[in-house]
Every structure is written in structure tokens, then in C-alpha cells.
């Protein structure tokens, strides 16, 4: 076992348990401790490479009972793209009715994930 060059502590955000992950980076590779499930290892590796997040926000609704409908990305997106995504989503307007799970925009900004509604919105 080579000497640990660097030890980082991060909080796993894959679920509300919030495990403290100890990432030991040495000449032999990367070792992860403190995870209570395999998703912790996955999360830590991704966090080192390129942090990924699910984005949740809302889009404007035209002709709906509510002025907005809540949305999320169908999968994770690079954290570094969140600003671009927010700028893009701000311009979207969608006509009611909307059903939970409806795809609002496919392959948003070419990131390979869709923007989907997370709530129903009936017509006014």
C-alpha cells in the first residue's frame, strides 16, 4: 500500500443519509471509505472527475390553473452546465394541460437527458 498522498472528505448526496466519504488518493489508486452503499463509491469517483447533479426548477405555463409547473432533468447533468441550463429553461413556455412525467424538452442542451414535468397542471 503506497503512502496516501491526499485524503479528501466529502458528503455523499445520493440520498438523505449523507454519508461522510473519505477519499484516499495514493500512488496505488483511489480508496473510498465511509459509504453505506455502493452508490457512495460511484458518487465519489464522479465527484472527483466531474460533479453531476439533478436540476430541479420550474417552467412557465400558458393557460394553466397554475402559473408554473415544476420540472427536473431526467438524469444528472454536469454541475458546470447548471447556469446554462437555467438560462435556457427560463425561456421555455409550455401550454397546459401538463401531466406529471411529460417531457417538456428532449435532450436538453444536448446533455443526453430530458426535462420532465414533476407535477400535473390542468387547463384553466
Amino acid at each position: 500500500m503506497g503512502k496516501a498522498k491526499r485524503i479528501e472528505k466529502i458528503k455523499c448526496i445520493r440520498c438523505p443519509l449523507g454519508c461522510t466519504l473519505k477519499i484516499k488518493i495514493s500512488e496505488d489508486g483511489i480508496e473510498i471509505e465511509g459509504n453505506r452503499c455502493p452508490r457512495g463509491v460511484e458518487f465519489a469517483m464522479q465527484e472527483l472527475k466531474d460533479p453531476m447533479r439533478i436540476l430541479t426548477t420550474s417552467v412557465k405555463v400558458v393557460g394553466g390553473k397554475l402559473p408554473l409547473v415544476s420540472v427536473k432533468t431526467s438524469g444528472t447533468v454536469p454541475r458546470s452546465k447548471i447556469h446554462d441550463l437555467m438560462g435556457h429553461i427560463k425561456k421555455i413556455k409550455i401550454r397546459a394541460p401538463i401531466k406529471i412525467g411529460d417531457v417538456i424538452e428532449k435532450n436538453i442542451l444536448g446533455l443526453g437527458v430530458d426535462l420532465v414535468a414533476t407535477r400535473d397542471c390542468d387547463e384553466r
Binding site: 440520498c15 438523505p16 439533478i54 415544476s70 427536473k72 406529471i100 414533476t118
Partner: peptide, 19 residues
């Protein structure tokens, strides 16, 4: 609560509040 993180125990998946 339109953010996600709900349902990890009950539904074994991460949902937003409305979901």
C-alpha cells in the same frame, strides 16, 4: 418542495416533493 431527495426509503428512488 420541488427539489429532489424524497422517497429514498419508501419508494427506493429519489423523487421531488410533488412526485
Amino acid at each position: 418542495c420541488i427539489h429532489n431527495g424524497f422517497g429514498v426509503h419508501r419508494y427506493k428512488k429519489e423523487l421531488t416533493g410533488p412526485e
